[in-house]
Amino acid sequence: MATDQAEQLAAGRRQRRVLAVPEPLRPAVQSFCDFMIRSRERSRRAGTLPRTDATTEATLANLRDLALFLAGERGKRNWALTDVHDLEALLANSPKPRSVGWWCSDSSSASRGPGRASSWIPPAV
């Protein structure tokens, strides 16, 4: 449970992002949000660096955008139906290059050199 104002505000932002996901896809996003919060608490107890609220919220915003795209543009109502073509279409239709959470790396990790980026970077078109 959120104990101070900053935590309460972050919890509200997370909840708004989850509620913006179309209903058929929402339970999985809610479960993932809960998992991220539990992981952060576990990380704090272990004394390791936890994910920040901003990181968690950006990840949820990316999932929301993906879910809206899948439901609205692709007519998909189940995460299991998502494939690489859906992700490529979302990235191609993105109005600007940006870090897209767990499926795309930002420029700072790409600058680490070949083979050092922590996640996949889409090829230039």
Rank of each mutant, 00 (worst) to 15 (best):
C104N: 12
A80I: 10
S111N: 13
D34L: 02
Q15A: 12
G72F: 04
E57F: 02
L68K: 03
P50R: 06
L63T: 06
V18W: 00
L49K: 13
Q30D: 09
E41K: 03
Q8T: 05
L25N: 00
L9C: 01
P122S: 08
R98Q: 14
W103M: 14
L87G: 12
R44I: 15
Q8H: 08
L19N: 05
W102D: 15
L70F: 06
T82K: 04
Q5G: 01
E7P: 01
S119P: 02
R112H: 14
E23H: 00
L91H: 11
P122E: 04
L60H: 00
T82R: 10
T48N: 10
G47T: 08
R14A: 02
D65C: 02
A10V: 06
R98G: 08
R45L: 11
A28M: 05
D65N: 09
L19P: 05
S109C: 09
L9S: 08
G47I: 07
A92N: 13
A89I: 06
A67W: 05
P95W: 12
A46T: 06
H85Y: 13
M36S: 11
R13T: 06
L9F: 04
P50Y: 09
W79G: 00
L49T: 15
A110Q: 15
G47C: 08
I37E: 04
R40W: 06
A28C: 01
R116K: 15
A124T: 15
S109L: 05
L91W: 09
L81Q: 15
M1F: 03
R112S: 11
L49W: 10
A46M: 10
R64W: 05
A92M: 12
A110C: 13
P123Y: 07
Q15R: 08
P27N: 01
P95V: 10
A117W: 07
S39P: 00
A110V: 15
N62S: 05
L60P: 03
L25I: 01
D4W: 00
A61G: 08
S94F: 07
P97G: 11
F69W: 12
C33T: 01
G12Q: 08
A28F: 00
